[in-house]
Amino acid sequence: MQTKKMTATIDNLGRFRENPPVLKDAVFNVLKYAILIFLAFWFMLPLISCVITAAKTDKEYATTTVTQLPKNWFNIQSYINAFNLSNMGNAFKNSIIILVVVLVCTTLIGTQLAYVLSRFTFPGNTLIRGLFTVAALLPGIAMQVALYKMMVGMHAVNSLWGYIIMSMGTDVISIYVFIQYFENIPISLDESAIVDGASYFTVYSKILLPLLKPAIVTCVILKGVGVYNEYYAANLYLQSAHLKTVAIALYTFTGPQGSKYNLICAGVILTLLPMLVLFLLFQKQIYTGIAAGAVKE
């Protein structure tokens, strides 16, 4: 016998439906949001505390505890000090040069390779794909030991161009994304263009490249984030002060400056501000890129 009280109705499609238990749902809902807010609090706490501390003046920082709120939320003195101390202007200039050159070159190289690999069958096609897949397995840090010795030998340490060419290296994920994208563009498009007298290069540059735009945007953003945030290789190969990128400009704050957290926090926020803007503008493309990167693995 049914002991639990149950209500049911017939809905407008004639299906027999149990009415949702309202109270239980409400409890679950509250619990769901409570967990979400709790976790969001912990995830944001490190960043929010940085914003709070960065808004304090030197004197305020010395006299208050870290959880006390600043008097003036819009005090930008620490930001200005941090910017000047770490020579951030020069760092942004270097980062922008590196980003522009690396992104333009990797996009060109990547799309060209993907075009050839996806459109032509030739001996070595599978081999090249295999070489790129295996390269993705090798962890970058481990490779740097031998790479560094090579770069020393080529006199490419402490040179912006050496670093740029090294960063262009292999970008396996974007090549895979491009290949996938090419394979979804019907080959009849190429063929009709060739019948009309276009060369292979024209087909690539005038017809396929414009169609590839969404994939290019995704890959440029992801690669851009990677290049902008790269600190290990940058620190290894760009040692002189005038070559520092944004990611390693923060190293200024180790040593004697190591406890002035209002400056450090301001510096941290300055470096991640471009990422925040990028994220707010291109959320969807970033999520797509992350998902596409996983598929290949």
Binding site: F43, L47, Y228
Partner: peptide, 21 residues
């Protein structure tokens, strides 16, 4: 967005953030 954003922060900044934290 809140849960994802830390992924976009560069390593050195993460280091300072957690030393402070």
């Amino acid at each position: 967005g809140l849960f994802f954003f830390p992924y976009l922060i560069n390593g050195i900044a993460v280091g300072f953030i957690f030393k402070f934290f």
